[in-house]
Amino acid sequence: MPAHKQLNLTLRVWRQPDAGSRGEFRDYKLYSVSPEMSFLEMLDVLNEQLLEEGEEPVAFDHDCREGICGTCGVVINGQPHGPMQGTTTCQLHMRNFEDGDLIVIEPWRASAFPVVRDLVVNRSAFDRIIQAGGYVSVRTGQAPDGNAILVPSPDQAGAMDAAACIGCGACVAACKNASAMLFTAAKVSHLAQLPQGEPERKQRALQMIATHDEEGFGACTNTYECEAACPAEISVSHIARLNREYSKAMLTARQ
């Protein structure tokens, strides 16, 4: 393992006691950070230090710490999940930073994602978008044999590409319009590429977009910042598919 020297850092962290309060940045010095630490482990160390000093720890969301659950995510120096491509905050390591760096840490900023505390935001709007149609209506126990539904391998691969979305919200955080189009598109595109999604495809596109808008997310202006920030590397081609699905549904749905 290559030897790295330890880092001394200044962290500028957004502190906000609860949704109703005004937040502010606070600076913390952190010494002797190992480059082998993950970014969240660095925050753990900060919190241990704060506890010793009698200050309440910084709240941040995290769970699996292996890049799949989608719980973690902060904006690091203006970039959601930090500087690495295809990487969640928990998989970002401190070797990507330099000794003496100032690291500004902010929560996802979006009206639809109100701050819960410090770096924690409420992403339940995503659940409501899925509730609007991100499913196949099949009752438990009603399903035919798995091989009764044939899915060509490339279609399965395309659906899997979209279904890989971890629902972290980095797309919203990165988008200048705080649009959740990549998230919504990932689900619409996943089901639009499979025969199972066929019966409900029109309603799905219409209703999921209606909910997306009601939740207060912005519109897509094709800057593709979402794709660049997405830790699951979901492609914007899924947004195009969503646009197709939507316009087809808009023009041909029976209601």
Binding site: R12, F25, E106, A110, S111, A178, G218
Partner: peptide
């Protein structure tokens, strides 16, 4: 779109 962001990013 501006309303959707709400609070702006510092960076």
């Amino acid at each position: 779109n501006r309303a959707a962001r709400g609070v702006r990013y510092a960076v």
